[in-house]
Write a protein that binds this DNA or RNA. Structure first.
Length: 569
DNA sequence: GAGTTTGAAACT
DNA sequence: CAGTTTCAAACTC
Protein backbone atom coordinates (compact mmCIF):
# COMPACT_ATOMS: atom_id res chain seq x y z
CA UNK A 1 0.00 0.00 0.00
CA UNK A 2 1.26 3.34 -0.86
CA UNK A 3 1.99 5.76 1.82
CA UNK A 4 -0.73 8.22 2.41
CA UNK A 5 1.96 10.81 2.71
CA UNK A 6 2.92 10.04 -0.81
CA UNK A 7 -0.61 10.47 -1.84
CA UNK A 8 -0.80 13.76 -0.20
CA UNK A 9 2.50 15.00 -1.41
CA UNK A 10 1.90 13.75 -4.86
CA UNK A 11 -1.27 15.71 -4.75
CA UNK A 12 -3.05 13.82 -7.42
CA UNK A 13 -5.32 15.75 -9.59
CA UNK A 14 -8.58 16.61 -8.05
CA UNK A 15 -11.86 16.44 -9.70
CA UNK A 16 -12.54 18.61 -12.68
CA UNK A 17 -14.67 20.85 -10.63
CA UNK A 18 -11.87 21.40 -8.24
CA UNK A 19 -9.60 22.33 -11.03
CA UNK A 20 -11.91 24.73 -12.64
CA UNK A 21 -13.43 26.52 -9.75
CA UNK A 22 -11.56 28.86 -7.60
CA UNK A 23 -12.39 28.74 -3.96
CA UNK A 24 -14.46 31.86 -4.27
CA UNK A 25 -16.47 30.46 -7.07
CA UNK A 26 -17.51 27.46 -5.16
CA UNK A 27 -20.83 27.01 -3.60
CA UNK A 28 -21.30 27.17 0.06
CA UNK A 29 -19.21 24.36 1.41
CA UNK A 30 -21.99 23.14 3.53
CA UNK A 31 -24.55 23.27 0.85
CA UNK A 32 -22.26 21.22 -1.27
CA UNK A 33 -21.75 18.85 1.55
CA UNK A 34 -25.44 18.51 2.01
CA UNK A 35 -25.81 17.95 -1.64
CA UNK A 36 -23.34 15.18 -1.30
CA UNK A 37 -25.26 13.48 1.42
CA UNK A 38 -26.34 10.04 0.54
CA UNK A 39 -29.32 10.39 -1.62
CA UNK A 40 -32.50 9.49 0.10
CA UNK A 41 -34.47 7.41 -2.24
CA UNK A 42 -38.12 8.05 -2.60
CA UNK A 43 -39.52 6.23 0.29
CA UNK A 44 -42.97 5.39 -0.86
CA UNK A 45 -41.63 3.07 -3.47
CA UNK A 46 -40.14 0.99 -0.75
CA UNK A 47 -42.76 1.43 1.85
CA UNK A 48 -44.55 -1.74 1.01
CA UNK A 49 -41.45 -3.73 1.63
CA UNK A 50 -41.50 -2.76 5.21
CA UNK A 51 -44.75 -4.39 5.98
CA UNK A 52 -44.14 -7.16 3.62
CA UNK A 53 -41.13 -7.94 5.66
CA UNK A 54 -43.35 -9.13 8.42
CA UNK A 55 -44.37 -12.11 6.46
CA UNK A 56 -41.14 -13.07 4.99
CA UNK A 57 -39.76 -16.43 5.81
CA UNK A 58 -36.46 -16.21 4.08
CA UNK A 59 -33.57 -14.29 5.43
CA UNK A 60 -31.17 -12.51 3.28
CA UNK A 61 -29.03 -10.75 5.77
CA UNK A 62 -27.58 -11.75 9.03
CA UNK A 63 -27.94 -8.35 10.37
CA UNK A 64 -31.50 -8.01 9.42
CA UNK A 65 -33.02 -11.22 10.37
CA UNK A 66 -36.46 -10.65 11.56
CA UNK A 67 -39.25 -8.38 10.61
CA UNK A 68 -36.78 -5.99 9.35
CA UNK A 69 -37.33 -3.94 6.33
CA UNK A 70 -35.08 -4.72 3.50
CA UNK A 71 -32.01 -2.81 3.03
CA UNK A 72 -32.78 -2.57 -0.57
CA UNK A 73 -29.45 -2.62 -2.22
CA UNK A 74 -30.99 -2.42 -5.59
CA UNK A 75 -32.41 0.92 -4.92
CA UNK A 76 -30.01 2.35 -2.50
CA UNK A 77 -26.51 2.75 -3.68
CA UNK A 78 -23.93 3.06 -1.03
CA UNK A 79 -22.43 6.43 -1.23
CA UNK A 80 -19.22 7.00 0.51
CA UNK A 81 -19.21 10.70 0.37
CA UNK A 82 -16.50 12.85 1.70
CA UNK A 83 -16.20 16.41 2.60
CA UNK A 84 -14.84 18.48 -0.07
CA UNK A 85 -11.51 20.02 0.34
CA UNK A 86 -12.89 23.43 0.94
CA UNK A 87 -15.11 22.01 3.62
CA UNK A 88 -12.18 20.37 5.20
CA UNK A 89 -10.79 23.75 5.61
CA UNK A 90 -13.97 25.22 6.90
CA UNK A 91 -12.52 25.66 10.30
CA UNK A 92 -9.28 27.04 9.06
CA UNK A 93 -8.50 30.60 8.32
CA UNK A 94 -9.10 30.73 4.65
CA UNK A 95 -11.21 27.69 4.18
CA UNK A 96 -9.50 26.78 0.98
CA UNK A 97 -6.85 24.25 0.26
CA UNK A 98 -5.20 23.18 -2.85
CA UNK A 99 -4.01 19.88 -1.62
CA UNK A 100 -5.83 16.66 -1.83
CA UNK A 101 -6.18 14.29 1.00
CA UNK A 102 -6.73 10.82 -0.03
CA UNK A 103 -7.63 7.80 1.92
CA UNK A 104 -7.30 4.65 0.04
CA UNK A 105 -9.37 1.69 0.75
CA UNK A 106 -7.36 -1.38 -0.01
CA UNK A 107 -10.48 -3.44 -0.31
CA UNK A 108 -11.41 -1.28 -3.17
CA UNK A 109 -8.51 -1.71 -5.46
CA UNK A 110 -10.29 -1.60 -8.69
CA UNK A 111 -8.90 -0.13 -11.79
CA UNK A 112 -10.48 3.07 -10.64
CA UNK A 113 -8.90 3.01 -7.31
CA UNK A 114 -6.21 5.48 -7.96
CA UNK A 115 -8.57 7.82 -9.55
CA UNK A 116 -11.61 7.44 -7.42
CA UNK A 117 -10.47 6.03 -4.16
CA UNK A 118 -11.95 7.55 -1.12
CA UNK A 119 -10.69 10.99 -1.72
CA UNK A 120 -11.17 13.97 0.44
CA UNK A 121 -11.94 16.23 -2.36
CA UNK A 122 -14.82 16.63 -4.61
CA UNK A 123 -14.61 13.06 -5.74
CA UNK A 124 -16.96 10.58 -4.36
CA UNK A 125 -17.03 6.89 -4.32
CA UNK A 126 -20.30 5.46 -5.28
CA UNK A 127 -21.01 1.83 -5.47
CA UNK A 128 -23.58 1.64 -8.12
CA UNK A 129 -24.24 -0.25 -11.24
CA UNK A 130 -21.58 -1.26 -13.62
CA UNK A 131 -20.48 1.48 -15.84
CA UNK A 132 -17.78 1.82 -18.37
CA UNK A 133 -17.69 5.49 -18.00
CA UNK A 134 -14.78 6.06 -15.73
CA UNK A 135 -14.97 9.75 -16.18
CA UNK A 136 -18.12 10.28 -14.32
CA UNK A 137 -16.31 9.91 -11.08
CA UNK A 138 -18.33 6.92 -10.10
CA UNK A 139 -17.05 3.46 -9.53
CA UNK A 140 -19.84 1.14 -10.18
CA UNK A 141 -20.23 -2.54 -9.63
CA UNK A 142 -22.92 -5.08 -9.95
CA UNK A 143 -25.71 -5.55 -7.45
CA UNK A 144 -24.25 -8.70 -6.05
CA UNK A 145 -20.90 -7.14 -5.63
CA UNK A 146 -22.57 -4.19 -4.06
CA UNK A 147 -23.76 -6.17 -1.14
CA UNK A 148 -20.41 -7.79 -0.76
CA UNK A 149 -18.74 -4.45 -0.79
CA UNK A 150 -21.16 -3.18 1.74
CA UNK A 151 -20.27 -6.01 4.04
CA UNK A 152 -16.61 -5.77 3.29
CA UNK A 153 -16.39 -2.16 4.17
CA UNK A 154 -16.68 -2.93 7.79
CA UNK A 155 -15.53 -1.14 10.82
CA UNK A 156 -12.60 -3.45 10.81
CA UNK A 157 -11.66 -2.23 7.44
CA UNK A 158 -12.20 1.31 8.40
CA UNK A 159 -9.94 0.90 11.31
CA UNK A 160 -7.42 -0.96 9.29
CA UNK A 161 -7.29 1.47 6.49
CA UNK A 162 -8.24 4.71 8.02
CA UNK A 163 -6.59 4.33 11.36
CA UNK A 164 -3.52 2.57 10.12
CA UNK A 165 -0.16 3.68 11.29
CA UNK A 166 0.58 5.16 7.98
CA UNK A 167 -2.55 7.08 7.92
CA UNK A 168 -2.23 8.16 11.48
CA UNK A 169 1.00 9.82 10.58
CA UNK A 170 -1.18 12.32 8.91
CA UNK A 171 -4.01 12.20 11.31
CA UNK A 172 -3.39 13.96 14.51
CA UNK A 173 -6.27 13.23 16.77
CA UNK A 174 -7.74 9.95 15.84
CA UNK A 175 -11.25 9.16 14.91
CA UNK A 176 -13.36 10.47 17.65
CA UNK A 177 -13.90 14.01 16.74
CA UNK A 178 -11.59 15.81 14.44
CA UNK A 179 -8.95 14.73 12.09
CA UNK A 180 -5.93 16.84 11.63
CA UNK A 181 -4.35 16.55 8.29
CA UNK A 182 -0.87 17.52 7.40
CA UNK A 183 -1.48 18.47 3.87
CA UNK A 184 0.98 20.52 1.95
CA UNK A 185 2.51 23.04 4.26
CA UNK A 186 -0.57 23.54 6.33
CA UNK A 187 -2.07 21.59 9.11
CA UNK A 188 -5.78 21.59 9.16
CA UNK A 189 -8.57 20.18 11.16
CA UNK A 190 -11.72 18.81 9.86
CA UNK A 191 -14.82 17.44 11.30
CA UNK A 192 -14.76 13.83 10.42
CA UNK A 193 -17.20 13.20 7.65
CA UNK A 194 -19.29 10.61 9.32
CA UNK A 195 -20.94 9.55 6.23
CA UNK A 196 -17.76 8.00 5.02
CA UNK A 197 -18.79 5.12 7.16
CA UNK A 198 -20.94 2.35 5.90
CA UNK A 199 -24.41 2.42 7.29
CA UNK A 200 -23.91 -0.43 9.63
CA UNK A 201 -20.94 0.97 11.45
CA UNK A 202 -22.00 4.20 12.94
CA UNK A 203 -20.76 3.37 16.40
CA UNK A 204 -17.23 3.90 15.25
CA UNK A 205 -17.58 7.58 15.58
CA UNK A 206 -19.91 9.56 17.66
CA UNK A 207 -21.86 11.76 15.35
CA UNK A 208 -23.14 13.82 18.19
CA UNK A 209 -20.12 16.04 17.99
CA UNK A 210 -20.79 16.88 14.47
CA UNK A 211 -24.41 17.60 14.99
CA UNK A 212 -23.87 19.60 18.08
CA UNK A 213 -21.37 21.65 16.22
CA UNK A 214 -23.51 21.82 13.24
CA UNK A 215 -26.51 23.67 14.26
CA UNK A 216 -26.07 27.31 14.60
CA UNK A 217 -22.35 27.09 14.88
CA UNK A 218 -19.38 27.72 12.73
CA UNK A 219 -18.98 24.07 12.07
CA UNK A 220 -21.76 24.16 9.68
CA UNK A 221 -20.62 21.12 7.83
CA UNK A 222 -21.86 18.73 10.37
CA UNK A 223 -25.52 18.38 9.70
CA UNK A 224 -25.60 14.71 9.19
CA UNK A 225 -27.69 12.37 7.18
CA UNK A 226 -30.40 10.50 8.92
CA UNK A 227 -28.66 7.23 8.67
CA UNK A 228 -26.13 8.22 11.23
CA UNK A 229 -28.78 9.26 13.64
CA UNK A 230 -27.32 8.15 16.92
CA UNK A 231 -29.87 5.96 18.48
CA UNK A 232 -28.28 6.12 21.83
CA UNK A 233 -28.48 9.84 22.05
CA UNK A 234 -31.81 11.29 22.69
CA UNK A 235 -30.61 14.69 21.78
CA UNK A 236 -31.31 14.30 18.13
CA UNK A 237 -34.35 13.94 16.09
CA UNK A 238 -34.66 13.51 12.41
CA UNK A 239 -35.57 16.77 10.94
CA UNK A 240 -38.11 14.95 8.91
CA UNK A 241 -39.87 14.23 12.11
CA UNK A 242 -40.17 17.89 12.81
CA UNK A 243 -40.99 19.30 9.49
CA UNK A 244 -42.73 16.25 8.26
CA UNK A 245 -43.66 16.00 4.66
CA UNK A 246 -42.53 19.48 3.99
CA UNK A 247 -38.89 18.65 4.11
CA UNK A 248 -37.28 18.81 0.79
CA UNK A 249 -36.41 15.38 -0.42
CA UNK A 250 -32.81 16.33 -0.81
CA UNK A 251 -32.52 17.21 2.79
CA UNK A 252 -34.97 15.17 4.61
CA UNK A 253 -32.30 13.03 6.15
CA UNK A 254 -30.91 15.81 8.23
CA UNK A 255 -31.06 15.53 11.97
CA UNK A 256 -31.28 18.27 14.47
CA UNK A 257 -31.15 18.47 18.23
CA UNK A 258 -34.55 17.61 19.48
CA UNK A 259 -34.83 20.63 21.67
CA UNK A 260 -34.30 22.84 18.74
CA UNK A 261 -37.14 25.14 18.00
CA UNK A 262 -38.61 24.98 14.56
CA UNK A 263 -37.64 28.55 13.99
CA UNK A 264 -34.10 27.60 14.80
CA UNK A 265 -34.26 24.85 12.28
CA UNK A 266 -35.27 27.32 9.67
CA UNK A 267 -32.54 29.62 10.84
CA UNK A 268 -30.08 26.83 10.62
CA UNK A 269 -31.09 26.06 7.12
CA UNK A 270 -30.65 29.69 6.29
CA UNK A 271 -27.19 29.57 7.70
CA UNK A 272 -26.17 26.57 5.77
CA UNK A 273 -27.54 27.86 2.57
CA UNK A 274 -30.69 25.92 2.11
CA UNK A 275 -33.66 27.96 1.02
CA UNK A 276 -35.94 27.96 3.97
CA UNK A 277 -39.01 29.65 2.63
CA UNK A 278 -40.34 26.25 1.95
CA UNK A 279 -40.23 25.53 5.64
CA UNK A 280 -41.46 28.74 7.15
CA UNK A 281 -45.17 28.40 6.77
CA UNK A 282 -45.01 24.71 7.13
CA UNK A 283 -43.25 24.88 10.41
CA UNK A 284 -45.87 27.26 11.60
CA UNK A 285 -48.60 24.95 10.52
CA UNK A 286 -46.86 22.10 12.14
CA UNK A 287 -46.71 23.87 15.44
CA UNK A 288 -50.33 24.84 15.26
CA UNK A 289 -51.47 21.41 14.38
CA UNK A 290 -49.41 20.03 17.17
CA UNK A 291 -51.06 22.31 19.65
CA UNK A 292 -54.52 21.73 18.39
CA UNK A 293 -54.35 18.01 18.05
CA UNK A 294 -55.86 16.36 21.03
CA UNK A 295 -54.03 13.29 22.00
CA UNK A 296 -56.13 10.25 21.73
CA UNK A 297 -54.99 7.42 23.88
CA UNK A 298 -57.85 5.04 23.55
CA UNK A 299 -56.63 1.57 23.20
CA UNK A 300 -57.82 -0.88 20.66
CA UNK A 301 -61.34 -1.94 21.05
CA UNK A 302 -61.84 -4.84 18.74
CA UNK A 303 -59.88 -7.97 18.08
CA UNK A 304 -59.82 -7.24 14.41
CA UNK A 305 -58.12 -4.00 15.03
CA UNK A 306 -55.60 -5.81 17.14
CA UNK A 307 -54.39 -7.56 14.07
CA UNK A 308 -54.53 -4.56 11.87
CA UNK A 309 -53.01 -2.02 14.15
CA UNK A 310 -51.00 -2.03 17.30
CA UNK A 311 -52.45 1.27 18.42
CA UNK A 312 -49.32 2.53 20.00
CA UNK A 313 -49.39 5.61 22.13
CA UNK A 314 -45.79 6.59 22.09
CA UNK A 315 -45.09 10.11 23.14
CA UNK A 316 -41.38 10.45 23.41
CA UNK A 317 -39.82 7.68 21.44
CA UNK A 318 -41.13 8.96 18.13
CA UNK A 319 -41.97 5.31 17.58
CA UNK A 320 -38.38 4.62 16.76
CA UNK A 321 -37.55 2.49 19.71
CA UNK A 322 -38.56 -0.91 20.80
CA UNK A 323 -40.84 0.66 23.33
CA UNK A 324 -43.13 1.22 20.42
CA UNK A 325 -45.19 -1.83 19.73
CA UNK A 326 -45.55 -0.98 16.10
CA UNK A 327 -41.88 -0.40 15.60
CA UNK A 328 -40.98 -3.51 17.53
CA UNK A 329 -43.41 -5.52 15.47
CA UNK A 330 -41.91 -4.27 12.27
CA UNK A 331 -44.89 -2.33 11.09
CA UNK A 332 -45.50 1.30 10.47
CA UNK A 333 -47.70 3.25 12.73
CA UNK A 334 -51.05 3.97 11.27
CA UNK A 335 -53.87 6.36 11.74
CA UNK A 336 -55.28 4.23 14.46
CA UNK A 337 -52.22 4.91 16.56
CA UNK A 338 -52.22 7.75 18.99
CA UNK A 339 -48.54 8.41 18.94
CA UNK A 340 -46.96 11.82 18.91
CA UNK A 341 -44.19 13.00 16.65
CA UNK A 342 -44.27 9.67 15.00
CA UNK A 343 -41.47 8.93 12.60
CA UNK A 344 -42.39 5.31 12.09
CA UNK A 345 -44.11 6.05 8.85
CA UNK A 346 -43.46 5.24 5.24
CA UNK A 347 -42.54 8.83 4.62
CA UNK A 348 -39.54 8.41 6.84
CA UNK A 349 -38.71 4.97 5.73
CA UNK A 350 -35.03 5.64 5.42
CA UNK A 351 -34.86 6.81 8.96
CA UNK A 352 -36.82 3.86 10.16
CA UNK A 353 -34.69 1.44 8.27
CA UNK A 354 -31.50 2.93 9.54
CA UNK A 355 -32.61 3.01 13.12
CA UNK A 356 -33.75 -0.54 12.89
CA UNK A 357 -30.45 -1.43 11.45
CA UNK A 358 -28.66 0.18 14.33
CA UNK A 359 -30.79 -1.68 16.79
CA UNK A 360 -30.08 -4.91 15.03
CA UNK A 361 -26.42 -4.20 15.22
CA UNK A 362 -26.76 -3.97 18.93
CA UNK A 363 -29.05 -6.91 19.20
CA UNK A 364 -29.49 -9.09 16.14
CA UNK A 365 -32.57 -10.65 17.65
CA UNK A 366 -34.20 -7.40 18.55
CA UNK A 367 -36.81 -7.84 15.87
CA UNK A 368 -37.03 -11.54 16.09
CA UNK A 369 -40.40 -12.88 16.98
CA UNK A 370 -40.51 -12.93 20.74
CA UNK A 371 -41.63 -16.52 20.91
CA UNK A 372 -39.48 -19.30 19.66
CA UNK A 373 -40.02 -22.97 19.46
CA UNK A 374 -36.96 -24.89 20.49
CA UNK A 375 -38.24 -27.98 18.79
CA UNK A 376 -37.07 -26.63 15.51
CA UNK A 377 -34.94 -23.80 16.72
CA UNK A 378 -36.82 -21.44 14.59
CA UNK A 379 -38.58 -18.29 15.49
CA UNK A 380 -42.19 -17.95 14.66
CA UNK A 381 -41.52 -16.08 11.53
CA UNK A 382 -44.67 -17.22 9.94
CA UNK A 383 -46.81 -15.75 12.59
CA UNK A 384 -48.61 -19.01 12.86
CA UNK A 385 -49.63 -19.09 16.45
CA UNK A 386 -50.44 -22.74 16.21
CA UNK A 387 -46.83 -23.49 15.62
CA UNK A 388 -46.02 -21.86 18.88
CA UNK A 389 -48.87 -23.40 20.72
CA UNK A 390 -46.73 -26.10 22.16
CA UNK A 391 -45.36 -26.73 25.59
CA UNK A 392 -41.89 -25.88 24.46
CA UNK A 393 -42.73 -22.54 22.95
CA UNK A 394 -41.07 -19.92 25.01
CA UNK A 395 -40.08 -16.36 25.09
CA UNK A 396 -36.77 -15.78 23.42
CA UNK A 397 -35.35 -13.76 26.28
CA UNK A 398 -37.47 -14.78 29.15
CA UNK A 399 -39.10 -12.40 31.53
CA UNK A 400 -37.82 -10.76 34.67
CA UNK A 401 -41.02 -10.26 36.50
CA UNK A 402 -40.82 -9.60 40.16
CA UNK A 403 -44.23 -8.57 41.32
CA UNK A 404 -46.68 -9.70 38.74
CA UNK A 405 -45.95 -13.38 39.33
CA UNK A 406 -46.05 -13.73 35.60
CA UNK A 407 -49.77 -13.67 35.82
CA UNK A 408 -50.40 -10.37 34.16
CA UNK A 409 -49.70 -8.95 30.84
CA UNK A 410 -46.78 -7.10 32.20
CA UNK A 411 -45.11 -10.43 31.80
CA UNK A 412 -43.99 -10.96 28.25
CA UNK A 413 -44.28 -14.68 28.55
CA UNK A 414 -47.79 -14.52 29.86
CA UNK A 415 -48.72 -11.94 27.31
CA UNK A 416 -47.48 -14.27 24.62
CA UNK A 417 -49.38 -17.12 26.21
CA UNK A 418 -46.34 -19.22 26.75
CA UNK A 419 -44.89 -20.66 29.87
CA UNK A 420 -41.89 -19.30 31.59
CA UNK A 421 -38.69 -21.18 31.11
CA UNK A 422 -35.38 -21.54 32.77
CA UNK A 423 -34.30 -18.62 30.71
CA UNK A 424 -36.60 -16.41 32.68
CA UNK A 425 -35.38 -14.52 35.69
CA UNK A 426 -38.76 -14.08 37.21
CA UNK A 427 -39.56 -14.35 40.87
CA UNK A 428 -42.50 -16.20 42.36
CA UNK A 429 -43.48 -17.37 38.94
CA UNK A 430 -47.04 -18.50 38.73
CA UNK A 431 -47.46 -18.37 35.02
CA UNK A 432 -50.59 -20.29 34.18
CA UNK A 433 -49.08 -21.29 30.85
CA UNK A 434 -46.20 -22.95 32.57
CA UNK A 435 -44.24 -22.02 35.58
CA UNK A 436 -40.59 -21.44 35.44
CA UNK A 437 -39.81 -24.26 37.78
CA UNK A 438 -42.12 -26.63 36.02
CA UNK A 439 -40.04 -29.33 34.48
CA UNK A 440 -40.32 -30.25 30.90
CA UNK A 441 -41.55 -33.67 31.84
CA UNK A 442 -44.29 -32.15 33.91
CA UNK A 443 -45.40 -30.10 31.01
CA UNK A 444 -45.37 -33.12 28.78
CA UNK A 445 -47.41 -35.01 31.25
CA UNK A 446 -49.84 -32.16 31.52
CA UNK A 447 -50.20 -32.08 27.78
CA UNK A 448 -50.39 -35.81 27.73
CA UNK A 449 -53.23 -35.81 30.17
CA UNK A 450 -55.02 -33.36 28.01
CA UNK A 451 -54.44 -35.64 25.07
CA UNK A 452 -55.71 -38.56 27.07
CA UNK A 453 -58.87 -36.70 27.77
CA UNK A 454 -59.22 -36.01 24.12
CA UNK A 455 -58.62 -39.65 23.36
CA UNK A 456 -61.19 -40.77 25.82
CA UNK A 457 -63.68 -38.37 24.47
CA UNK A 458 -62.97 -39.51 20.99
CA UNK A 459 -63.27 -43.11 22.02
CA UNK A 460 -66.60 -42.51 23.57
CA UNK A 461 -67.81 -40.67 20.57
CA UNK A 462 -66.63 -43.22 18.07
CA UNK A 463 -67.27 -46.14 20.35
CA UNK A 464 -64.93 -48.86 19.22
CA UNK A 465 -62.97 -47.42 16.40
CA UNK A 466 -59.68 -45.69 16.46
CA UNK A 467 -60.58 -43.64 13.51
CA UNK A 468 -60.33 -40.08 14.53
CA UNK A 469 -57.59 -40.39 17.05
CA UNK A 470 -54.95 -39.60 14.59
CA UNK A 471 -54.70 -36.07 15.72
CA UNK A 472 -54.44 -36.83 19.41
CA UNK A 473 -51.74 -39.33 18.71
CA UNK A 474 -50.02 -36.89 16.53
CA UNK A 475 -50.42 -34.33 19.22
CA UNK A 476 -48.74 -36.57 21.72
CA UNK A 477 -45.84 -37.10 19.44
CA UNK A 478 -45.64 -33.47 18.74
CA UNK A 479 -45.54 -32.81 22.39
CA UNK A 480 -42.93 -35.42 22.91
CA UNK A 481 -40.95 -33.91 20.17
CA UNK A 482 -41.39 -30.44 21.49
CA UNK A 483 -40.41 -31.32 24.94
CA UNK A 484 -37.39 -33.19 23.89
CA UNK A 485 -36.26 -30.69 21.36
CA UNK A 486 -36.89 -33.12 18.63
CA UNK A 487 -38.22 -32.84 15.22
CA UNK A 488 -40.24 -35.90 14.54
CA UNK A 489 -41.90 -36.98 11.43
CA UNK A 490 -44.80 -39.32 11.91
CA UNK A 491 -46.26 -39.21 8.51
CA UNK A 492 -45.07 -37.89 5.22
CA UNK A 493 -48.09 -35.71 4.87
CA UNK A 494 -48.34 -34.56 8.37
CA UNK A 495 -47.94 -30.93 9.08
CA UNK A 496 -44.68 -31.66 10.79
CA UNK A 497 -43.11 -32.66 7.59
CA UNK A 498 -42.84 -29.08 6.64
CA UNK A 499 -40.63 -28.55 9.59
CA UNK A 500 -38.68 -31.68 9.21
CA UNK A 501 -36.29 -30.30 6.71
CA UNK A 502 -33.52 -32.56 7.76
CA UNK A 503 -35.27 -35.66 6.72
CA UNK A 504 -34.34 -36.94 3.35
CA UNK A 505 -37.00 -37.04 0.80
CA UNK A 506 -36.63 -40.75 0.35
CA UNK A 507 -37.05 -41.44 3.98
CA UNK A 508 -39.88 -39.05 4.21
CA UNK A 509 -41.78 -40.77 1.53
CA UNK A 510 -41.57 -44.06 3.29
CA UNK A 511 -43.95 -42.68 5.77
CA UNK A 512 -42.94 -45.10 8.42
CA UNK A 513 -39.48 -43.93 9.15
CA UNK A 514 -39.12 -42.22 12.43
CA UNK A 515 -36.75 -39.38 12.17
CA UNK A 516 -35.36 -38.03 15.30
CA UNK A 517 -33.07 -35.07 15.32
CA UNK A 518 -32.06 -32.86 18.05
CA UNK A 519 -32.54 -29.35 16.93
CA UNK A 520 -29.46 -28.33 18.75
CA UNK A 521 -27.38 -30.80 16.85
CA UNK A 522 -26.36 -31.05 13.33
CA UNK A 523 -28.82 -32.89 11.18
CA UNK A 524 -26.75 -36.00 11.06
CA UNK A 525 -26.28 -36.34 14.73
CA UNK A 526 -28.52 -38.76 16.46
CA UNK A 527 -30.71 -37.91 19.37
CA UNK A 528 -29.15 -38.05 22.70
CA UNK A 529 -30.08 -41.13 24.56
CA UNK A 530 -31.47 -39.26 27.51
CA UNK A 531 -34.04 -37.66 25.34
CA UNK A 532 -35.01 -41.03 24.06
CA UNK A 533 -35.14 -42.40 27.54
CA UNK A 534 -37.39 -39.56 28.56
CA UNK A 535 -39.70 -40.34 25.77
CA UNK A 536 -39.68 -43.97 26.64
CA UNK A 537 -40.39 -43.27 30.23
CA UNK A 538 -43.26 -41.03 29.45
CA UNK A 539 -44.66 -43.44 26.96
CA UNK A 540 -44.36 -46.35 29.30
CA UNK A 541 -46.21 -44.44 31.93
CA UNK A 542 -48.84 -42.79 29.96
CA UNK A 543 -49.45 -44.32 26.59
CA UNK A 544 -52.58 -46.30 26.18
CA UNK A 545 -51.83 -49.89 25.52
CA UNK A 546 -53.61 -49.92 22.27
CA UNK A 547 -51.29 -47.27 21.04
CA UNK A 548 -48.34 -49.42 21.87
CA UNK A 549 -49.50 -52.25 19.70
CA UNK A 550 -48.05 -53.13 16.39
CA UNK A 551 -50.52 -51.13 14.45
CA UNK A 552 -49.15 -47.88 15.62
CA UNK A 553 -46.21 -46.15 14.03
CA UNK A 554 -43.98 -46.66 16.96
CA UNK A 555 -43.36 -50.29 16.26
CA UNK A 556 -42.96 -49.84 12.61
CA UNK A 557 -40.19 -47.39 12.77
CA UNK A 558 -36.73 -48.26 11.72
CA UNK A 559 -34.48 -49.58 14.29
CA UNK A 560 -32.13 -47.07 15.77
CA UNK A 561 -32.64 -47.26 19.45
CA UNK A 562 -34.44 -49.26 22.01
CA UNK A 563 -37.53 -47.50 20.87
CA UNK A 564 -36.83 -48.03 17.29
CA UNK A 565 -36.14 -44.40 16.71
CA UNK A 566 -34.43 -43.78 13.50
CA UNK A 567 -31.40 -41.87 14.30
CA UNK A 568 -30.71 -40.65 10.89
CA UNK A 569 -27.67 -42.74 10.25
C1' DG B 1 -59.78 9.53 32.17
C1' DA B 2 -56.25 10.24 35.44
C1' DG B 3 -53.00 8.27 38.10
C1' DT B 4 -50.26 4.24 39.43
C1' DT B 5 -47.73 0.09 38.68
C1' DT B 6 -44.93 -2.70 36.11
C1' DG B 7 -41.10 -4.47 33.56
C1' DA B 8 -38.67 -3.94 29.08
C1' DA B 9 -35.61 -0.99 26.84
C1' DA B 10 -32.25 2.25 27.02
C1' DC B 11 -28.72 4.46 29.22
C1' DT B 12 -24.65 5.15 32.32
C1' DC C 1 -22.46 -6.26 33.75
C1' DA C 2 -25.06 -4.04 37.16
C1' DG C 3 -27.56 -0.12 38.55
C1' DT C 4 -30.44 3.64 37.07
C1' DT C 5 -33.52 6.05 34.12
C1' DT C 6 -36.86 6.27 30.58
C1' DC C 7 -40.67 4.64 28.43
C1' DA C 8 -45.17 2.93 27.29
C1' DA C 9 -48.40 -0.72 28.31
C1' DA C 10 -51.20 -2.63 31.76
C1' DC C 11 -53.75 -1.88 35.40
C1' DT C 12 -56.58 0.41 39.17
C1' DC C 13 -59.66 3.57 40.84
Amino acid sequence: MESYRNDIEASPTTSPSEQVLTPCEKKSPVSEFLNDLSPIMPSRARASLYKQRLYETSFTSNSSLFNSPHLNIHQRPINLNFLQSDEIGASSSNGCYQDDFMIKHSEYHTQHDEQYGACFNASEVTIGKTSDNANDGVVEISDDERLDKMLDISSKNIREHVASDEFMEHVGQGLDSKLTFLGGNQAMSMQLPYNILPLNHYPLISPIVGVADCVGSDHHGACVPSHILPLSHDTLIPLAGRVGDHVDSDHHGVCVPKNMEDSQIVSCFHQIGIPCQQFGDKVDQLSKSKDSSKRKRDRKTSPDETEACKHCNCRRSRCLKLYCECFAAGIYCEDCCACENCVNKPDYEDIVLDIRHQIELRNPLAFAPPIVNPSNDSPNVTGDENLMNTPSARHKRGCKCKRSKCLKKYCECYRAKVGCSDGCHCENCDNSFGKKSESMIQRVEKQQNQSHEMLNTTQVMSDSTLVGITNPVSSIWENLADNNHLTISTHPYSRDMRDCQNVSQVESEKGTSFHCYSSALSPKQPCQSKEIDDIYEIMADGFPDYLMETSNPINTVNSGSSLGLYNGE
